[in-house]
């Protein structure tokens, strides 16, 4: 990879004050030098939706319309003015799930890493618990998972240990070294006056395109990166019943410091799309911070993935994520 290939996103970073607002004092940290911190507080809602015309026109290829037309219920839902009519969930995997997760990950300069994940979903929003006449008690349900000092421990609501097992701690030192390399590289590039003057799109156009990648700019200035996916895991990612080469399309803002949208196709059939929201007003809470600069992280992500259910009906698995905090701080 040449330096020309590098996108100088750091140059466009918005300078903000650097007050260290982390995920509250939920967790204690070891008295060691911290290299990277990640704090996240996200509410995630997973639901299954019909391919109705108003919201999912992009997914409705002639093949999809044909498949839906075979199902009376699906047709009714597609043509309905709203989706609130009584529906039947036949497959358990279609039960909506609401989760609110707070997590903290710390990578120390020594290469040690600790993670803590807490499930703080309010009981009244825990739909899964209403699916049985005899739900698990809070102390029987995993509310917190922690990795520390070579142990992976899960806890119930009362802080009771539900499972505890040793795990081999990864050494993150080489990872930190490579991250540092990328950041230093970007800093170096961004300091060059000739490069500073160029737009993000020009820089990309001037760089060597990897095979199977196309980049272009749309009328509104946003940039599209299209890439043919040839990976071993392609088969597992494919939507069954849809043929064609897999390709992805990433749409960023003109500065290329924000991903606005991501799309996945099999042939000409859209099989997945993700849209990103930025609130713009709370960059400290939703941000990537490096060397006193901050880049805005999304405050909301809506992901919609096409799948064919057990009855052969195409549906959308929708995941909505609302970040109350989405913060990555690099301390070097």
């Amino acid at each position: 990879m040449t330096r020309k290939n590098l996108f100088l996103g750091l140059a466009a970073i918005l300078l903000v004050s650097c007050n260290n607002e982390n995920a509250g004092n939920l967790f204690e940290t070891a008295d060691e030098e911290i290299a990277v911190e990640l704090f996240s507080h996200v509410k995630r809602v997973e639901s299954i939706e019909f391919l109705n015309t108003s919201d999912y026109e992009e997914f409705l290829s002639p093949e999809m319309r044909s498949q839906i037309s075979k199902d009376k219920q699906a047709m009714m839902k597609v043509s309905a003015s709203n989706n609130n009519e009584l529906d039947t969930i036949y497959s358990l995997s279609e039960i909506p799930v609401i989760k609110e997760i707070v997590s903290k990950n710390i990578i120390y300069a020594s290469g040690k890493m600790t993670t803590i994940t807490q499930d703080i979903t309010p009981d009244e929003e825990n739909i899964i618990n209403t699916m049985t006449a005899t739900p698990l008690l809070p102390e029987q349900t995993i509310k917190k998972t922690e990795t520390k000092d070579g142990m992976l421990i899960s806890y119930g609501a009362d802080g009771n240990i539900l499972s505890s097992e040793p795990y081999e701690e990864p050494n993150m030192k080489p990872f930190l070294d490579s991250l540092r390399y990328y950041i230093d590289l970007a800093e170096l590039e961004s300091s060059k006056q000739s490069v500073k003057a160029q737009s993000a799109f020009t820089k990309i156009r001037n760089s060597v395109m990897p095979a199977g990648v196309n980049v272009w700019q749309m009328d509104d200035g946003n940039i599209v990166i299209e890439e043919i996916i040839n990976s071993q895991s392609e088969n597992e990612m494919r939507v069954k019943g849809v043929s064609g080469q897999m390709r992805s399309r990433t749409i960023t803002n003109p500065e290329m410091d924000k991903t606005l949208r991501f799309e996945l196709y099999q042939g000409n059939q859209m099989v997945s799309r993700r849209t990103y929201q930025y609130n713009g007003s709370d960059k400290l809470k939703n941000s990537v911070r490096i060397k006193g600069s901050a880049l805005e992280n999304p405050s909301g992500i809506i992901s919609e993935v096409l799948f064919i259910n057990d009855r052969g009906i195409p549906k959308i698995r929708k995941t909505q994520e609302e970040y109350k905090q989405n913060q990555l701080i690099v301390h070097f």
Binding site: M1, L6, S207, S248, V288, L295, I301, L328
Partner: peptide, 21 residues
């Protein structure tokens, strides 16, 4: 999240990081 940092620098990672999600 880490890929978000790296993809600021290396633009081609912008699309592939989404595969992690």
């Amino acid at each position: 999240d880490v890929m978000s940092v790296v993809s600021i620098v290396v633009w081609k990672y912008k699309s592939t990081k989404e595969l992690v999600r």
